[in-house]
């Protein structure tokens, strides 16, 4: 953990060497989801609701997902950019050091410019929390926090899976966008507006349902089962990371036996 902090510090120092570029990028990162959110706002202005969800409910979803995405993009950038690490051979360097590969890859890169996106999602979330028709309790606030944390775990897990693919091929990785960017776009609406098979896939295979749908029902008081169960579903989402780490390990082993 101390080492992780060290990595953070050294990378922050590096990034601060290019201050102008840093601010420009952060600024841009603020505007990317902003335009998407503007689109969402205009849609609600015209249609009023989407399958029974009103604007603030969806905005809450949007805020949570984008916040989780920006945090994991900032922390897990090393996995996101892993193909370059493999193709220029720097991964070998990590292997001759007496530390686990996951920690070292995480520490290889941070994208601090995602602060822009984070800020934007924070604003949206604040607006939604303020405007939404919910009696906020401590438990509900905690659940909201769980949702973000769980989202971070899931996105990081996906980044890790994609990175593990690099051990076999670095061509056609664009398809992984379906799960990263696609997952983000999809999960910014409550899951039940989609077709059944999409809902199933994104609940049981990649557990976004545990982040944005089941706990949301609890916060809005729409549950018809045990509220505690709904409240705890985000923790189940965190478990997604376990198989991802296993696949990663398997990938590293494959790499070391082929050296591709």
């Amino acid at each position: 953990m101390k080492l992780f902090g060290k990595y953070l510090l050294i990378l922050f120092k590096s990034q601060m060497q290019y201050r102008t570029s840093f601010w420009l990028m952060s600024f841009g990162q603020f505007f990317i989801p902003f335009s998407v959110f503007a689109g969402l706002y205009f849609m609600f202005e015209r249609f009023g609701q989407i399958k029974g969800w009103d604007f603030y409910e969806v905005a809450l979803c949007f805020g949570v997902i984008h916040m989780a995405f920006s945090i994991s993009e900032c922390l897990g950038r090393g996995f996101d950019m892993f193909s370059t690490l493999v193709s220029n051979g720097d991964f070998d360097r990590l292997l001759v050091r007496p530390r686990g590969t996951v920690l070292q890859v995480l520490g290889s890169k941070f994208e601090f410019t995602r602060i822009g996106r984070l800020l934007q999602s924070l604003l949206v979330l604040g607006w939604a929390v303020y405007g939404i028709d919910v009696d906020w309790t401590f438990a509900k606030a905690i659940t909201l926090l769980f949702m973000v944390v769980s989202g971070v775990f899931i996105f990081t897990g996906i980044f890790m899976l994609v990175a593990a693919m690099c051990f076999w091929t670095i061509q056609g990785l664009e398809i992984a966008n379906i799960f990263t960017d696609g997952g983000r776009e999809m999960a910014q609406y409550p899951l039940n507006i989609y077709q059944k098979w999409v809902v199933r896939f994104f609940t049981y295979v990649i557990p976004f349902g545990c982040v944005n749908y089941l706990p949301l029902l609890y916060i809005l008081g729409k549950t018809d089962g045990s509220p505690l169960l709904h409240m705890l579903t985000p923790l189940a989402g965190c478990l997604f990371l376990v198989p991802c780490v296993l696949v990663w390990r398997f990938g590293v082993r494959h790499y070391r036996s082929t050296g591709s």
Binding site: K2, I10, S14, G89, P98
Partner: peptide, 24 residues
């Protein structure tokens, strides 16, 4: 590895050394 670098590109060398101290 003569053709690759293990030092962080944008920071003073001593910072890389300090990090290596912690890694090892």
């Amino acid at each position: 590895f003569g053709q690759r670098s293990q030092l962080w590109w944008d920071v003073p060398v001593i910072d890389s050394f300090d990090l290596l101290r912690d890694i090892y």
